[in-house]
Amino acid sequence: MSFSNDVRHEISTSVNDKDRRFACLYGMLLFCRVLTIGHICFQSESLTSAELFSRLFEAVFKYKPVSSEHIRKNGAILHTCDVFGENAASVFQKYRLDESKRTIDSEIIATNSLGVFTAGIFLACGSVNDPSKEYHLEFACPEEEIALQLQTLLRDIGVTAKTVIRRGQNIVYIKGSESIEDTLTFIGAPQCTLELMNMKIYKDIRNKANRIANCDAANIDKVIKAAMKQIEDIKLIDSTIGIDTLNDELREVAQLRLDNIDMSLQEIGESLSEPISRSGVNHRFKKLAKLADDIRNGGCR
Rank of each mutant, 00 (worst) to 15 (best):
K203D: 14
V253A: 04
M1H: 10
G298V: 10
R296F: 03
Q266V: 06
A50N: 12
Q255L: 09
K18D: 04
S49A: 14
T103D: 06
I212P: 06
I261C: 04
T111L: 07
I165Q: 13
A289H: 14
E195W: 12
E10R: 05
A218S: 13
S127P: 06
G27Q: 04
F42R: 08
N198A: 14
T185N: 11
S279Y: 14
S90T: 03
L272D: 11
C24F: 02
S277M: 11
R206F: 11
I212H: 09
F31H: 11
M197D: 12
A218Q: 12
G75N: 02
M28P: 04
A161V: 03
L25I: 08
F61D: 03
A88I: 01
L97G: 03
P65S: 07
I276D: 08
N112W: 05
M1Q: 09
L52H: 06
H283M: 15
S271T: 13
S12E: 06
S49Y: 04
I146Q: 01
C300N: 14
G85Q: 02
N198S: 14
I224L: 08
K101R: 13
G242K: 07
L56M: 08
C300E: 15
Q43F: 04
I146F: 01
K229S: 14
N214T: 14
A50V: 10
I237M: 03
E267I: 12
L56W: 04
N207E: 15
Q169K: 12
E145G: 06
E86D: 03
I37S: 12
I234L: 05
K229D: 13
S2W: 10
R296C: 10
T48A: 07
E178R: 07
R301Y: 14
G176R: 05
A147L: 05
S273T: 15
N282I: 13
L123H: 06
M263W: 10
T183C: 06
Q151L: 02
M263F: 13
L272V: 08
S113F: 06
D6C: 02
T111I: 11
A289I: 07
E181Y: 09
K225T: 10
N260I: 03
K175E: 05
S264G: 12
S14P: 03
I201V: 15
L25G: 02
Y95A: 02
V60C: 08
G280I: 09
Q255H: 01
Y26R: 06
K62C: 12
L246R: 00
I157V: 08
N210S: 13
M1W: 07
